[in-house]
Design a protein around this nucleic acid. Sequence first.
DNA 1: CGGATTTGTTTAATCGTTTCAACAAAATCC
DNA 2: GGATTTTGTTGAAACGATTAAACAAATCCG
Lengths: 346, 346
Amino acid sequence: MNKKVSLKDIAQRVGVSTTLVSYVLNNQKENRIRKDVAQKIRDVAQELNYRTNQIAKSLKTKKTFTLGLIVADIANPFSSSLARIIEDEADRHNYTVIFGSSDENPQKSRKLIDTLLKRQVDGLIIAPPDGAASQIADLQRHHVPFVLIDRYFPDLKTSYVALDNCAAVYAAVDHLIDRGYRRIGLVTLQSSLYHMNERKRGYLAALKDRNLTFHKHWLKEISPDILKPEIERATDDLLAGPQPVEALLFTNNTVALHGLKYLQSLRLRIPDDLAIVCFDETDALDLFYTPITHIRQPLREIGQQATRILLETIDKTNKITQVNLQAELVVRESTSQMVSKLVHGR
Amino acid sequence: MNKKVSLKDIAQRVGVSTTLVSYVLNNQKENRIRKDVAQKIRDVAQELNYRTNQIAKSLKTKKTFTLGLIVADIANPFSSSLARIIEDEADRHNYTVIFGSSDENPQKSRKLIDTLLKRQVDGLIIAPPDGAASQIADLQRHHVPFVLIDRYFPDLKTSYVALDNCAAVYAAVDHLIDRGYRRIGLVTLQSSLYHMNERKRGYLAALKDRNLTFHKHWLKEISPDILKPEIERATDDLLAGPQPVEALLFTNNTVALHGLKYLQSLRLRIPDDLAIVCFDETDALDLFYTPITHIRQPLREIGQQATRILLETIDKTNKITQVNLQAELVVRESTSQMVSKLVHGR
DNA sequence: CGGATTTGTTTAATCGTTTCAACAAAATCC
DNA sequence: GGATTTTGTTGAAACGATTAAACAAATCCG
């Protein structure tokens, strides 16, 4: 690699001090510096193809203009869409983003936080995995600027931008009931994360408020490690017996994807045999033969707000901001008014 | 934010020099340092929750252990899957990744390269957009370690890891012909990027080698800016007239997604009305009602090799490595043996 | 005209590390 | 027992920038 050009090189070439070069290239003390000297410096900088050493600058100024982003898995469209929005929003303020995937694993998350802090990121945007509460509390104790996204810990008074998950699922289940479905199943992930519990809570609350008795075998909690087989078994279960569910709600995009694939392979007709609601919007949903009713998270809003809040926190340390956003229920044909069963069933 | 703990703080607390602390924490001069002093230093470091300031370290050592990654769009599953593989591979060597999306825009790409170099990344992995050849040549001229992925410039002697795109499409078209299809359309992106041309070349070569005359209206080149309407129009075109195409090949995942959505909305039966091959593998494909024959890129291989080559380049400057990988044609039902038309047509 | 002010530039310290060279004290050698 | 080597530690310069303070020269002002 070519020796890199430093302020000193420019200074020598022009015959001035590095201080002066620094002032000129940072547009400081403009009224004090002779125009011709300034121009000369700029010219030489250009000519030598000078590029600020941001590392040196950061060391001195104690600011890296870098944000750390921890998502569950950057390969998951939910994470990567969010990452893209955050990237753009950060860029708008001249920040760049270092990212890492925690794989829902608190050890990895801890290691990532450590790595990012060693690199002196100015702040963190974190989708914390299950079991990361103590790490987050630590961050707070050390006054590291951060914002949680997607998930948060209700016991911890931290900034976050998240969805009102309970309301989101409540609305979806309510909609199913409106459309005539009574036996409604929920396929969700085993997790003690608050946001996942909220989804469960919304489901139960909606059933209760509409006076439907809940049967506990309608609620399937899947181990994230053996997702695919468990989803298939859960689906089989829900559809078996004399009283199969009439509608099914998948509580995130991964579960939905595997679930839909399986339903496809069973040649089930949606919504005639089974109504479907999915959490999260993915390109994939569009390719399913029946357009799928789904819960759309305001990703742009989440990403932008999180970035905005983080940048504010970085600037003036104090204050905590908590944002709860509402999901949108996008109604499609997978939850059309239930007719067939009415005809047959009564 | 709490004042951060530095080597000096530890040194003062223990009553030794920062030099000694540095040696201990970096496991240097182990045989020279008294065991009890070393232990004391480690204890205090732990107690104060010391975290190396990687910025300072990097400034001194001229190594950031950071890779810059430039993809077209991190929100695109192709990019994000690759990003994830690169992240893991980098992590295995204690590197972290800063990323940016170029949106296929050479200005953005130039700006990203600049930003990343200012941050003194040790090397770059780049999927260069159309029109970025000169930027890449510049990098080379300045001996910046980098590897291109997915795309490259045949005129430039740079390291890259890419697919043999010509062979990939050739095999797909060959397969279609084997299965009895004769009128085969190609929907691709307008682009002067070599890899896209190669896809076109593979298509034409396959037709030629099998003695099928090519009709130029079978080849549709879409403007990336107005993707959706143009794909729909192209599809309409290809299916119109007395001699509609019998098979269609979409040359990347975005085109495929929009194309399939549109075919879905037309209620076309795949493969009876039209056989389909898609470039790239996505989760989305699995939800289409007919399993889709597709060209699978060896993403893991691409990401791992690119990272490996980059790290090698960083270590011992010289040598250029060019890797051409073969795609795999995953045959599914969307290209079943053509029967219907045979019956009707003859 | 001479002191005060303004103009244009430089000196030097600093950020938190690393690392070479120096050094005192202890151990070894002849 | 004095010279030499080894052991354990420290001083100081350096990385490439920023920035407060100092300073010389030019200009102003009464």
